[in-house]
């Protein structure tokens, strides 16, 4: 069953057009990778799905409901959560408070503080620390946990690997199956193709605001991907 569908999504920043009619479909339980170089429009796309940017035209349907132009605070209540680029933890909140505020929308579901601490045991012992006192990898875990606390049906992850050592990135990606086991669909956005393609069922490649390629990781050749990625 289709969980998310966008049609002809166009987004502007002032006079600058960032997205030129993106069409995408994500089914329940799927893991999707969105890849593309810096400035391809990946973050813009996620931010418009999450309700932080209002599209100029086009349509976003989530779980059969039109959420185009819905403000971010209501989008999350309908089951779509974003782990923002750069983690964006709240510095005046402790780790546990950061996680708790993730559940502000009061959506029912399987996630609780205990579950989050089970997946990310590091966080439990640091739960009284301010979120910003943690290592980069641990901060990313808080950011993911915080998004999960809203019990999303679709989890959007923007550049999980940004600024993290490869071993830490691997560690974080290793927790993905536990999240998927709850039936949550996941979108990972990365500049780094390798990690994202390994976990994804399907992928979309963005280039200058267009979908330049879509398919299944195993079925597309390396050259095809790099052509779609770099536009050569």
């Amino acid at each position: 069953m289709t969980l998310l569908r966008t049609r002809d999504l166009v987004v502007h920043y002032g006079d600058f057009q960032a997205l030129f009619g993106i069409g995408m479909e994500i089914a329940d339980g799927e893991t999707i990778a969105i890849i593309g170089s810096n400035g391809a429009g990946k973050s813009t796309f996620l931010r418009s799905l999450a309700g932080l940017l209002a599209p100029s035209s086009g349509r976003i349907e989530f779980a059969g409901v039109d959420i185009t132009g819905m403000p971010a605070n209501r989008v999350v209540a309908s089951g779509l959560a974003l782990v923002p680029e750069g983690r964006k933890l709240f510095p005046s909140l402790s780790v546990e408070e950061n996680l708790l505020i993730g559940g502000y929308a009061k959506r029912k579901g399987p996630w609780s503080l205990e579950r989050i601490y089970r997946i990310f045991p590091d966080l439990k012992e640091k739960r009284r620390n301010p979120g910003t006192a943690l290592s980069g990898g641990q901060q990313q875990m808080v950011a993911i946990g915080r998004a999960l606390m809203s019990n999303p049906r679709l989890l959007l992850c923007d550049e999980l690997s940004l600024g993290l050592a490869p071993i830490v990135v691997k560690d974080i990606y290793a927790r993905l199956p536990e999240i998927l086991a709850e039936g949550t669909s996941v979108v990972v956005v990365e500049q780094d193709i390798g990690q994202a393609m390994k976990v994804a069922d399907r992928f979309y490649c963005l280039q200058e605001g267009h979908v330049s390629l879509a398919g299944k990781p195993g079925e597309v050749g390396r050259d095809q991907v790099s052509a779609a990625y770099f536009g050569v």
Binding site: A50, G51, L52, P71, A72, N73, R74, V76, A77, A81, L82, P84, K88, F90, P91, S92, L93, I101, G102, Y104, A105, K106, R146, A147, S150
Partner: peptide, 11 residues
């Protein structure tokens, strides 16, 4: 702290 991220929490 961060008005925009707060909205992502449903605030």
């Amino acid at each position: 702290d961060d008005q925009e991220t707060a909205q992502l929490m449903g605030i």
